[in-house]
């Protein structure tokens, strides 16, 4: 483990010595494009995250709705079966009388 620590330290130290070249100015047309996009009212497109969030929420709501309707339908079925049993036992009792 100590060797791993030491190796990782040396790797990180070496990687830290590599710096990307310093950029002095924006590529041609970039500033104009960015300014135009801002003025045109473009919203920053980070949509993968936003779309995923909305999709997950919709999916969660749909699942909750499905579970609720399944539960309600099972309960309704059980209630109907109980009613049938009650009617049958009432009929049997009435016949015997």
């Amino acid at each position: 483990m100590k060797n791993t620590d030491s190796s990782l330290d040396r790797l990180l130290r070496s990687a830290g010595q590599c710096h990307p070249p310093v950029v002095e100015e924006a590529p041609y047309g970039f500033a104009t494009r960015a300014a135009a996009a801002w003025l045109a009212g473009a919203s920053p497109r980070e949509l993968p995250g936003l779309e995923t969030l909305w999709f997950r929420r919709s999916l969660f709501c749909a699942l909750a709705l499905m579970a609720a309707s399944i539960g309600w339908s099972i309960r309704a079925d059980t209630a109907a079966a109980n009613d049938d049993m009650a009617i049958a036992s009432y009929a049997t009792t009435a016949d015997l009388q």
Partner: peptide, 11 residues
């Protein structure tokens, strides 16, 4: 102003 701002802070 927007163009100047972007140019200035791009690096």
């Amino acid at each position: 102003a927007a163009t100047d701002f972007v140019r200035e802070h791009y690096p």
